[in-house]
Design a protein around this nucleic acid. Structure first.
Lengths: 201, 201, 201, 201
DNA sequence: CCCTAACCGAGACGGTACGTCTAGTCTTATG
DNA sequence: CATAAGACTAGACGTACCGTCTCGGTTAGGG
């Protein structure tokens, strides 16, 4: 996977400057011109790089985009943990509201749609995404849910992966398919509904 | 909307034979060569049609694909209603298992991914999808849930749109991002977790 | 041959404007940037034409160049006959001096070298050259020599092709290989030497 | 000139093995893949040499080719003199027939065409060719013609350069432009015509 | 029942981008 | 310090499609 997406550290004499210029150019361009008009030629030109340098190190446009996201996520001082005030309901609402805000942020909307487009058609990229980009964040979510589980706020036999998908799935789907307004209130509703279930209590 | 996606019935002297050939060619080709290699030229060639005939009636490749799906869904004897045995849990599991089966069907996988790719980047198409393709199915789902609500099996103040997203969102997300195995058992787990909620009961 | 080099008159719906623009651009460019830097892309750009329009109608860069020359030679009101004053020696000197002048003309030097480069490596193009470009001129030369033969100024059993090569071969060789100065005086010397032979008289 | 074409003897620490490998590779490759597909990269790869080693010592592809020919011609035990039986006619026919045979030899045809291509566009290379490759052979020809001149078989006031061009020019031209069959009989005809002249005797 | 306008297939057109190839330069490590 | 190796910027190659634009040839009403 690593080598497949061009981040191999063992490769000799690879230009780090070119690598960074390419990833930055790719991220900027996809935000400016959109996914449909993103081209390898455009990335190379913006980065001041020969096309071959891209083709040499990445197997596809999607792989470049993926590495661009990876670079950004590593650049970010990833919040070491999700908030844990003891109030599960409030904490989850805060986190899902943050997710909603990010999905609505035009700076991230187009690039993330582009990445999802590639993931949609490239299983290898999907696996890389699950492992390298989504994985760390998912681990943080699990931590918070485990903590709630220990506090007796969640079922003991709950599959945390399912719980996460129950909370974030509706949001992501609304975002991807634009099937409804993606508001903070919606985030709250999802949290409440997921925690309490559809049945009457 | 109608005119925008080439299904205008009032248009004069349009060749129905060409229209059908184009939609069939589009659907078949996307399954054979994949979304990335699907081209208007290819569709025209396969359909035995001039390129202009496509450009005249559809604004984009996605619109053709959309109409191809529409034709198929209309061809299908639309199930008039979802099963309603009175056992909400069992009925939902049956329906979600059917959804899982369809998503895993290789005949529908690639075309549906292609359509989702277009929806991802084209709000107009997303709206058309919500209204014409997803809408009717969503109405059936709502019917079944309303029936359960009347029977006191679901909260009275439940937003049915949210309920539907809580049930189908996790499935669609797993399918789109390939973030986990999409099995009948998973469908069951989602139904149970959604109905009962994440909290201990 | 005709069809092979894009001059086919029967081809339907070919753009004559594009054809002319390409040939003119090719001829001008080869004179400006030289043969080594002449590129299909450059010709297309200069002609305001898509690359495919060149690739559609010509099999090679050399074929374009050839047609460019053909267009020019047809544009020229080709002198209907070589001078025939009765004085063979003087007439030949005049014609060979004209050849020398043309070979020394910088406007024709580079394009003609380019064409010869292509001919050097492409037998089909060489045949086209012999037939379409060199052929008509050669026929005029033969006419003049036949007239001299009738007047008893040339051997009756002389092979006119050989005679022509004896007269023009030395000039062309000096020009191609730059093996010596190409002056009017040299033209005179060649005529005299060829007519009288190397042996003492 | 010397330095310009990479034969500098004074250069320090130059690898003779690499030099030879490059020249041999260049000669072999031009015969195998043709002039159009001959590349510096190809030569370097075949010779097992870095590209820089070629760029360091030769200014152009043509210069490499030239040196390759030079190496071969020096390898040949240079015929010390042309045949001189006293029969000028027979001797010249023998020599021109040998030239014809060489020009028709497929082992030399492609490489010589390649060299001529470069000469066509590079005056410096043309001068080097005239001096180093063609020069020695031309001197031998002049020797034979001088001998004939002394024997009264050639005009006393004949310019020997012109005589040589009169004899070899037609051959070279037919070869370069493929303007006619290049046979031993043609060589004979050229000799006879050149010696006797075009006029009736 | 013919006329004529819209639609049809075909495909050439000016373009953009593809992914590959080579030019010529520069860097690294090896002997 | 020249070398083999090969990454680098640059840009042409020849191909595939894009979306637009004629071309003639049907084809279906409205006169």
């Amino acid at each position: 996977m690593t080598a497949q997406h061009g981040t191999a550290p063992g490769t000799r004499r690879r230009s780090e400057a070119s690598r960074r210029a390419i990833l930055i150019a790719a991220f900027e361009l996809v935000g400016e011109v959109g996914y449909a008009k993103l081209s390898i030629e455009g990335i190379a030109a913006r980065a001041g790089v020969g096309k071959q340098t891209i083709y040499r190190w990445w197997p596809s446009k999607g792989a470049v985009l993926f590495d661009a996201f990876l670079m950004l996520s590593e650049g970010t001082g990833d919040s070491p943990a999700l908030p844990d005030t003891g109030d599960l309901d409030a904490d989850l609402k805060a986190v899902l509201r943050a997710t909603v805000a990010e999905l609505n942020d035009p700076r991230y909307d187009e690039p993330m749609r582009a990445l999802n487009t590639e993931i949609l058609h490239d299983p290898a990229l999907a696996a890389a995404y699950a492992e390298r980009l989504d994985g760390p964040m998912k681990e943080l979510k699990k931590q918070r849910l485990r903590s709630a589980q220990r506090a007796g706020q969640l079922s003991g036999d709950l599959d945390l992966n399912v719980a996460i998908e129950m909370l974030w799935g509706p949001l992501l789907n609304r975002w991807l398919q634009r099937s409804g307004p993606l508001t903070p209130e919606y985030a709250d509703t999802v949290v409440e509904t997921a925690l309490n279930g559809l049945r009457p209590r």
